[in-house]
């Protein structure tokens, strides 16, 4: 198992390095590089939200808020405080800082709100996201309603991709651990989980904090990619967009979230040329997909190479 994981990590990182080399040498132009970076960033956002919504079954609508917290606080570190550190240290440090601020906010807010269930939690987290946004609208130090300008463009594809690979690995490991199973049991039946002696609040908060942390990291990546942080970049619609990726990929399926993040980011770009019709085509495609696959593209299943080996085994059996 460990060997397999090692092969997976080295393989994934190698792919990233090759793509980055292609970008640096100009084979892939900056436009595609930016789209690939956005895809990786949305993959982090979608998987981290999936941990909260899909795995633990807590309906959260505040992801854009955590993203904003991470984005602004990491940008404060790189823009406002001139620490004497080289860029390659400064950037991950600022992302870590942004993630930790978002996680701390997730902890503070999660503790009381995660006692709520279903719709009530959705409304509470929706409110939270808006409160964070309005806080940045009124905070003069980070530019208030004009937004924060002059953020260095540290983000490149390799950084985003490697961070995406590692954050996904951490989330997958968490899900496979006993903590993760506790989270899944809460999703399946909260009362039954409680009867089995699982501290439901503890595990819900744990999943919420981890999800918030990675949303914060993604926010930092976003800020250093666009080089401008504007409160309007973190509206409720952004939370919905991320939720859409999770639902489309299948609640509870990490690979589904990644596939949906890549698919939806690519789709918005591909439809750009249709201008006015763009949102109509986009919505229509979503309706069609949800009609035929109400459980999402992958449901709760994961996509892996083992699936193909099962196919071949079955085929072999059939031949006999």
């Amino acid at each position: 198992m460990n060997k397999k994981k090692l092969i997976f990590i080295t393989g994934a990182v190698a792919v990233g390095v090759v793509v980055q080399l292609l970008i640096s040498s100009g084979v892939i132009n900056p436009y595609f590089a930016q789209i690939l970076t956005l895809m990786s960033m949305y993959a982090i956002l979608a998987t981290s939200l999936n941990l909260i919504n899909g795995i633990t079954g807590q309906f959260s609508l505040g992801h854009a808020g955590f993203m904003a917290l991470g984005g602004y606080f990491s940008a404060i570190l790189t823009t406002k405080l001139a620490l004497p550190l080289p860029n390659f240290l400064m950037f991950p440090l600022s992302l870590l800082f942004g993630g930790l601020v978002a996680a701390a906010a997730g902890f503070l807010v999660g503790l009381p709100t995660l006692r709520l269930r279903g719709d009530y939690l959705a409304i509470a987290t929706l409110g939270l996201g808006e409160i964070i946004r309005v806080m940045f609208v009124n905070w003069k130090y980070v530019g208030a309603a004009a937004g924060m300008k002059g953020i260095p463009g540290y983000t490149n594809f390799l950084w985003t991709y490697v961070i995406a690979v590692f954050s996904i690995l951490i989330i997958v490991n968490f899900i496979k651990s006993s903590h993760g199973r506790a989270c899944i049991s809460i999703r399946e039946d909260e009362i039954a989980a409680e009867t089995m002696g699982i501290n439901t609040t503890k595990y819900k908060v744990m999943a919420f904090v981890i999800g918030a942390f990675f949303a914060g990291v993604a926010g930092g990546i976003f800020g250093h990619l666009i080089r401008l942080l504007h409160p309007n970049s973190f509206t409720f619609m952004v939370s919905v967009e991320i939720l859409l990726m999770v639902v489309l990929g299948g609640l509870g399926s990490i690979t589904g979230s990644i596939a949906a993040a890549v698919f939806l980011t690519g789709l918005t770009e591909a439809l750009r040329q249709f201008s006015d019709l763009r949102m109509i085509i986009y919505s229509l495609m979503l309706i069609v997909i949800m009609l035929f696959r109400p459980q999402g593209l992958l449901g709760t299943r994961e996509f892996s190479l083992d699936m193909f080996s099962k196919f071949t085994k079955k085929a072999e059996k059939a031949e006999r």
Partner: peptide, 22 residues
């Protein structure tokens, strides 16, 4: 050559990349 930005920041940045590079 017109590109839509959906009235949001990230799309404006991508649109600029597309116009310049593509």
């Amino acid at each position: 050559v017109l590109e839509d930005n959906k009235s949001i920041q990230v799309e404006s940045a991508t649109a600029a990349q597309k116009l310049i590079q593509q």
